[in-house]
Simulated scan of single mutants.
Amino acid sequence: MNNKLKIIFFGSSYFSLSILENICKFNKFLFLYIITKDNNLKINKNNYINLIKLFSIKNGINILQSRNLNENIINIIKKSNPDLIIIASYGNLIPNSIINIPKFGCINIHCSILPKWKGPFPIYWQIISGEKESGITIIKINSKLDSGNIIFQKKCKISEKENYVSLEKKLIDISCESIIYLLHKYINNEKINEIKQINNNNYEYARKINKKIDTKINWNLSSINIDRCIRANYIYGSYFYYENIYIKLWEAEILTTKKNLYKIGEILYIDKDGMGVNTKEGIIQIKVIQFPSKKKIDIKNYINSNNIIFKIGNLLN
């Protein structure tokens, strides 16, 4: 192929934007359209903006915004005659009426080693489940969720202290490198092998999270599982209640992992190193918290203030 590879890109998250920015660095690829949802991304406490829309305007790329892929968008895609459609964290299934349009089909970048952790929130659930490794899988999509043939996979380690943001950064870096590798294969008409997924019900599903339920700390879990919850929710912040006050929990560490005679949720100590709280199995040491309408604060600075509300022996939640 001597001309530029004509691409339509679907995406609606920070992950999508990072992939998009990387592809745009290469002048061998021509973006016909960027298709995103009409939702905005939070950039700070009071401001929301659609960063993908902002990027497309800045770079002179046509953009289509819609919560649903309606007939109008499908017709625009047909008329534009793309060589390839790339999906990266878009959030909706792509219908067959679109899948069959591009010359090379539609490919999707997924943040797990498929067929494990299909679904919309793989990064979160891999941390929650204590997985030791993650990675990305690029598939040729079909009508079923994350079930198409695999055309590329690359693994990475999940460290013991990995949180959502740090793991996402790893996967973005791998994805950026991998998608460029594949795009050069397409533009040079090189053969790309496809491996059929073994699709059955034995693999874990990464369901959409419920922020009210899944980010709440349950002290009846072990210190290991609570630590995973805090790290997995690092993008939102976990939370608990103390004397009817909603408090976010951003950082903690496992102190012990064995059962003891203290009550579940009991505050055992509070000092410059943190606040020790007993769990069903073991003690977790809280390091960074956040009160309503306040900034994050580490426990060391918190105990130097005159507004300490936590009392040793009291129970959280």
Rank of each mutant, 00 (worst) to 15 (best):
L64W: 00
K58S: 02
Q126R: 11
S143V: 08
I138Q: 05
L114R: 11
E71G: 12
K140C: 13
G130A: 03
I139Q: 13
S89H: 05
S143K: 15
L84V: 06
I77V: 06
I98K: 14
W125R: 05
I101M: 00
I43N: 03
I94N: 15
I63T: 05
I52Q: 07
S89L: 11
L145A: 03
Q126Y: 06
K45C: 03
S147A: 11
L145D: 04
I127E: 02
F55V: 04
N149F: 10
K144L: 12
K78D: 03
I113R: 14
I127T: 03
P122C: 04
E71I: 11
P115S: 14
N44R: 10
W117I: 11
R67D: 15
I128F: 01
N50M: 00
I150K: 09
D38C: 05
G130S: 06
N75S: 14
C111S: 08
Y90S: 10
Y48H: 07
N68E: 06
N46F: 10
W117Q: 12
I99L: 12
I123N: 05
K144P: 01
I150C: 09
I76R: 09
S66F: 02
K78H: 02
S97A: 02
K103W: 01
I123V: 10
E131Y: 14
I107M: 10
C111Q: 07
G60E: 04
G91V: 13
N92T: 04
N81T: 06
I99W: 03
I86P: 05
K78V: 05
K42S: 09
I73E: 05
I87F: 11
F121K: 13
N62W: 06
I52E: 07
N100P: 01
K116L: 14
L64K: 00
S56V: 09
I35F: 07
I52N: 06
I113W: 08
S80C: 02
I73D: 02
D38E: 08
I99H: 08
I139S: 13
I99V: 05
L69E: 06
L145S: 09
Y90R: 13
